[in-house]
Design a protein around this nucleic acid. Structure first.
Lengths: 105, 105
DNA sequence: CGGCATCCTTCTGGATACTG
DNA sequence: CAGTATCCAGAAGGATGCCG
């Protein structure tokens, strides 16, 4: 039933950083490792690397090595990962509302 | 911007159990402590108690002590918490899709 | 029944340094 | 630049027992 479905979704999305990383890729499209590192406030390269690898395995993002000097690596949402855009946008809308409520204005 | 909003939302929703608990209250409405304990697969009473308390502080759920014998306690989403229904339903839809993809079937 | 306290293990994730 | 490796502190969270 639906409760289990939510649980299944969270299996893939849980963790301190996952959804933030997805949000970056959702709103900014193609993005290099160091860009994401800068976009996601507070994440360490170790965590970013780990989370991206996990999400690649789960087929939410693709990893592309670009033949630049020095090498850069680009990440983007897969078509499948893009199916999460609705979720992310809802979350973003709610988060903005919540921020106002908590911080006051 | 939106990425920060997503981060803010996750501040409140993060953790292994939060969203599952919210999903229960979202789909089942009023629910007693022991019911939720049964609905959320694998959670311990310690965790449930802690998470519910946190969410009460964050004004996502209300706690009502019922004058039964023995005492029972009922939880339900606040109006504010209900604003998360969209998110939860999207998550549920995606989770169901994801489950099919992973488990095959 | 709901929930707190204690104990104890596992997991998370930060800091730092190193490599191709 | 994009990682990987190591070390380690602290948080998460399970098991169990107790209490009103």
């Amino acid at each position: 039933m639906q409760i289990m479905a939510v649980h299944d979704a969270m299996d893939v999305l849980n963790g301190k950083w996952r959804i933030s990383i997805l949000a970056v890729l959702c709103y900014r499209n193609k993005r290099r490792f160091s860009d994401i590192l800068a976009d996601v406030d507070g994440i360490s390269n170790k965590m970013l690397s780990k989370e991206l690898k996990d999400m690649e395995v789960n087929q939410l993002v693709t990893r592309t090595v670009l033949d630049t000097q020095p090498i850069t690596v680009q990440y983007e949402l897969t078509e499948y990962g893009q199916e999460l855009q609705t979720v992310i946008k809802n979350l973003s809308a709610w988060g903005a509302k919540h921020r106002k409520k908590i911080i006051g204005k």
